[in-house]
Design a protein around this nucleic acid. Sequence first.
DNA 1: ATGCAGTTGCAAATGATTTGCAACTGCATT
DNA 2: AATGCAGTTGCAAATCATTTGCAACTGCAT
Lengths: 143, 143
Amino acid sequence: MNEPEIHTTDYEAALREAGVRITRPRRVILGILADMGDHPDAMEIFQRAVAIDSGISLSTVYRTMKLLEGIGAIHRHAFAGGPSRFEPAVGEHHDHLIDIDTGDVIEFQSDKIEELQNEIAHRLGYEIVHHRFEIYGRKRKKR
Amino acid sequence: MNEPEIHTTDYEAALREAGVRITRPRRVILGILADMGDHPDAMEIFQRAVAIDSGISLSTVYRTMKLLEGIGAIHRHAFAGGPSRFEPAVGEHHDHLIDIDTGDVIEFQSDKIEELQNEIAHRLGYEIVHHRFEIYGRKRKKR
DNA sequence: ATGCAGTTGCAAATGATTTGCAACTGCATT
DNA sequence: AATGCAGTTGCAAATCATTTGCAACTGCAT
């Protein structure tokens, strides 16, 4: 009964800790977050939520995402010209490669980057809070 | 007549090459870009432009930024919850450290990052178009 | 000097996100 | 289990950034 998986209850615990109420809409959204493998935007999360409980409003999705972002449970990614996309802040930090033709988001992880950011921030007299490394690329066609 | 500096005329040459007209509003905006040392958003550029020529509209600023971005003359940076900020795409590529308390943007350059992105993109079967590396940090207080 | 396709300013439209407010509901307390 | 009320919610309207339709204007090739 202690799988290394993420469950709604983990988020609930985090929320309780943050001193907020576990309401019906929040439980639904938490459930969606728990098993999303992609990086949906607020509207997409809203649609999934409505499919589960038609009474949920888009405002609540936005409010909940902001709340979760505030307690560090999710990360927000801002893309130029589009809505923010979210992903659970769970496990190892990773970065993204965005396919500029298809919009696909590929995750990758590199210890060197983690090192590098520390080195650079230190050199500039800063303490890192977080970083973002995104590569925008196009699939290399095999020939 | 070939200084390594950036002048309005350099942008003009790039625009002409792209087959667009050099109009009065564009010349004003180009002039602003030529000597901006910061990373202003469209509204800020608009205000500087109006100070030079009161007839310029915000739409034109947006249209021009999009145009310049398209020909690669400037870079757009999207920040969560705020407007896009622009900077001339001139010289060596650099990345940013954002001070999360003050919003200051500090530029830095690292060859290692350039290497790393190539390595990673290659590993994933992609060809890099561009990348973005941002460190969000807080000033380390000296003790 | 002339013509017209490329540009512009303005206002209205769009898209993402936030907010005011009155009704509702967790949940700590009886 | 019933009570009270501060935290939440849904809805609609507001806000912010950005885009777009359109008629008037203007570079610039001729």
